[in-house]
Amino acid sequence: MIAIALTVNGKPVAAEVEPRRLLVDFLRDELGLTGTHIGCDTSQCGACVVHMDGVSVKSCSLLAVQADGSQVTTIEGLASDGDLHPMQAAFREHHGLQCGFCTPGMVMSAIDLAARVPEPSPADVREWLSGNFCRCTGYHNIVQAVMAGARAMSTDG
């Protein structure tokens, strides 16, 4: 077992983990943060995307020990005082989800895009989301939501 200490959604977390413990399992099973989903478990579908030190990563392809000392943000960490994050609000406004399974990963990935490209084009969004699968195939509204969310994020400063 290896001792790790990290910050998850702004709160300090300390734990002892097996080296083979995946970050996604640590978040879900030990911290109860089940908003981060396991879809394919082969690093293709993007349902498990979280932020580590401000950039999006697939938590099914990272070990919990690799997150030692880092700042992790999950979908549960986005809203503040009951107010949805602008990207979450945009997904609701534009109906950027059907079953919702892929949505946490979509939102976390989209926020990383918006941080790099404040006004992404539809092509930018589709290219960026190539690592996030929606098996309801609701991509059209997802793209609209990401563009609106990115605009809202840049407006909010």
Partner: peptide
């Protein structure tokens, strides 16, 4: 290369 999350790691 790969997707955005692969490129981030």
């Amino acid at each position: 290369i790969g997707d955005a999350q692969v490129r981030n790691r």
